[in-house]
């Protein structure tokens, strides 16, 4: 969670872009990845994400995220590939038995699925890594007209993750100091042993939420129109980048329908 959604402070051109531009970029990649089924084209899209991360100077931080995604995609392909029987057989896992048969269509299809998944998932951490959440919220509320309470809820839930982790640690310590066993081998018993942790956590969370609501109320939350301290301007660079992205996107889709890019 913390790795995927963390802002990584750098002074790069990508960081300075408007959150709207970056949201558009993320959305464009998702849309394009749904059009194409050629693993090479999808790999190209992924390469563009890696390039953006490189330009933003956050490739080192993104490396474990990309590695994790590749691993998950690999597993995904492994689970799928043996169940597609159409197409020419390339090889079988145990020769002569037909068990673990891999076909050319299956291989291509699975590679495309995996690559598509990576493209869709990989732009999000780059977006979050280069955009401060407060800027993202301002754009969501001001430009995309998402109601402020929802955007606020999103930010606050991120703010409270460490608080609840701490709370959980305390509860675990308190319960294990009273001989509560967590390391049960039996799956059902293990599941049941979570209850004495979950219930206190829930109670304290509700109490915290109530206190927070009171504190918000005394500072005029939800009165009506509000202002924002920092508003990231949509600059000429953003307009240029957006029109560039739109042009590339449209070109790719046109080429796709002409049958050049699959």
């Amino acid at each position: 969670m913390s790795v995927v959604a963390n802002y990584i402070p750098r002074d790069s051109a990508v960081h300075r872009l408007s959150p709207l531009t970056k949201l558009g970029w993320s959305f464009l990649l998702m849309t394009l990845s749904c059009f194409f089924r050629d693993p090479l084209v999808l790999a190209g899209l992924f390469a563009s994400i890696v390039l953006v991360a490189l330009a933003a100077g956050i490739l080192k931080e993104m490396y474990p995220v990309f590695k994790g995604l590749l691993f998950i995609a690999g597993l995904f392909i492994l689970f799928q590939i043996f169940f597609i029987s159409e197409g020419k057989t390339l090889f079988t896992l145990i020769p002569g038995t037909g068990i673990g048969r891999v076909t050319d269509l299956g291989l291509l299809g699975c590679l495309a699925m995996g690559a598509r998944m990576i493209v869709i998932a990989a732009s999000f951490p780059v977006l979050m890594g280069t955009t401060q959440i407060k800027d993202l919220v301002v754009v969501l509320v001001e430009k995309l007209k998402i109601p402020y309470p929802y955007a606020f809820m999103f930010v606050t839930s991120l703010r409270f993750v460490p608080t609840f982790m701490q709370e959980m640690d305390q509860i675990i310590q308190a319960q294990s100091s009273r001989a509560h066993r967590l390391d049960n081998k039996n799956f059902i018993k293990k599941f049941l042993s979570i209850c004495p942790l979950a219930i206190p956590l829930m109670v304290t969370s509700v109490k915290k939420a109530e206190r927070m609501a009171i504190s918000m109320e005394t500072r005029g939350f939800g009165v009506g129109k509000r202002t924002n301290l920092h508003v990231k301007q949509f600059r000429a660079v953003d307009a240029a980048v957006c029109s560039g992205m739109a042009a590339i996107g449209i070109a790719m889709v046109v080429l796709h329908f002409r049958g050049i890019l699959l």
Binding site: K208, M212, R219, L229
Partner: peptide, 25 residues
Amino acid sequence: PEAQIVAPVVEEEIAFGLENLAIPP
């Protein structure tokens, strides 16, 4: 103090009430 801080950064925490009351940036 834990439950009354709503923002992830000190600056934003102080700004929270002011923004709600629509004070100019």
